[in-house]
Amino acid sequence: MNKALRNPLVFILFVIPALVLFIMFFIYPIFSSLYYSFTSWNGVSDTVKYAGLDNFKKALGDERFWVSVKNNGWFILFSVCIQVPLIVFFSLLIANVKKLKGLYKTAVFMPSIMSTAVIGILWGFIYEPNIGLFNKVLGLVGIEPVYWLSDERFAMLSILITNAWQWTGFYIVMVLAAILSIPGELDEAAAIDGATGFQRATRITLPLIVPIISVVIMLSIAGAMKAADIVIVMTKGGPAGSTEVMATYMIKYAITNFKYGYGNTIAVLIFMFTLVVTALYQLLFARRNERIEY
């Protein structure tokens, strides 16, 4: 009877447009990157020269590349160690207040809908050494102006703070959705048994939202690995390359230095690192949390 839904020709027609785009913009680029990563093509020339593993050797031996890897690492560490606890804390708070819940939820989410580029500009303004908000606040308590974006010690931190400001609210709303979907009876039962609010939060709610926290961490890692625009807008990788991340390093080499082949090597490395970090996380942490259900 289901002949209509078994027609392979129609099936193909339905699938082809999306599939073609998908292959063109996801699958082909991976292989293309892989191909050029073994060449010394300058991006302009008509001849493409095979370079073997030279590019990979160069990248792995380049101090600057490792600086950028380290900075991606900072992104991950900062979001996992500082943002995640804050996210959980504020989600629990919002879930448990009765008044103003809607307001909190709406407001915390706001930075996440805005362009990273615009946020970078806005925060550049806040970090401005002479008239920026931060130094004015510090000035009130008598602290000398800090050169947030031009001092190597603070530049990366400044970017991380901005990044956290943009995304914390997004994750709060996500975790909040999970908390609010926990059946109320569990909590009520515990309350009847005499558990305090704090106990209920840590013993009942927290274990139940572990899966979503795991998702938050995964998304933070993915976000950290592809961070680029915030860096380009705020510091262009400076001062002295100290805030370079892998993606900006790649762009710099491929376009500014006429090293398209080498840039693609970096793309391949980004891809590989992302897979490794994701796989590691899955193996080490995600496994044991997988089967919590309610």
């Binding site: 913009f25 996801f26 680029p29 293309s32 690995m225 891809f271 992302t274 994701t278």
Partner: peptide, 24 residues
């Protein structure tokens, strides 16, 4: 098969593909 193929797409860090996309 097709659905899993597309799922792979979610794993790909798309900024890394900028250069080949530029070429396309």
């Amino acid at each position: 098969i097709l659905f899993s193929l597309v799922l792979i797409g979610m794993l790909i860090p798309n900024n890394a593909l900028m250069l080949p996309i530029y070429t396309i």
